[in-house]
Amino acid sequence: MNDRKGLILDFGGVLTTPLLTSVTEFESDEGLPQGSLLRQLSRDPELLRLTEDLERGSVTQAHWNEVAAQRIGVGPGNLLGRIFSGLRPEPLMYETAAAARQQGIRVGLLSNSVGRDPWDLYAGCDLDTTFDAVLISEEHGLRKPEPAIYEHMLKMLELPGSACVFVDDSPHNLPPAAALGMATVHARDPRATITDIQNLLGLGLPS
Rank of each mutant, 00 (worst) to 15 (best):
residue 18 P to G: 02
residue 21 T to R: 13
residue 21 T to Y: 09
residue 22 S to G: 05
residue 25 E to I: 07
residue 26 F to M: 07
residue 28 S to G: 10
residue 30 E to L: 02
residue 31 G to M: 09
residue 32 L to F: 08
residue 34 Q to S: 15
residue 35 G to I: 01
residue 35 G to P: 04
residue 37 L to R: 03
residue 37 L to A: 01
residue 39 R to A: 14
residue 41 L to H: 02
residue 43 R to T: 15
residue 45 P to H: 00
residue 46 E to K: 13
residue 47 L to G: 02
residue 47 L to C: 09
residue 49 R to A: 12
residue 51 T to Q: 12
residue 52 E to F: 04
residue 55 E to K: 14
residue 63 H to T: 09
residue 64 W to L: 08
residue 65 N to I: 00
residue 66 E to K: 05
residue 66 E to D: 06
residue 67 V to G: 07
residue 67 V to M: 08
residue 67 V to I: 14
residue 69 A to D: 03
residue 69 A to C: 02
residue 69 A to F: 05
residue 72 I to N: 05
residue 75 G to H: 04
residue 76 P to S: 14
residue 77 G to F: 04
residue 79 L to V: 09
residue 79 L to Y: 12
residue 79 L to R: 07
residue 80 L to R: 11
residue 85 S to I: 04
residue 86 G to H: 05
residue 88 R to G: 02
residue 89 P to A: 12
residue 90 E to T: 13
residue 90 E to W: 08
residue 92 L to E: 12
residue 93 M to Y: 04
residue 94 Y to H: 15
residue 97 A to P: 10
residue 97 A to S: 12
residue 99 A to V: 12
residue 99 A to Q: 06
residue 100 A to H: 05
residue 101 R to T: 07
residue 103 Q to A: 13
residue 103 Q to N: 10
residue 105 I to C: 10
residue 107 V to P: 07
residue 112 N to M: 10
residue 113 S to D: 15
residue 114 V to C: 15
residue 114 V to K: 09
residue 114 V to M: 15
residue 115 G to K: 10
residue 121 L to Q: 14
residue 123 A to S: 12
residue 126 D to F: 03
residue 128 D to V: 09
residue 130 T to I: 06
residue 131 F to H: 07
residue 131 F to G: 01
residue 132 D to I: 10
residue 132 D to V: 03
residue 133 A to R: 03
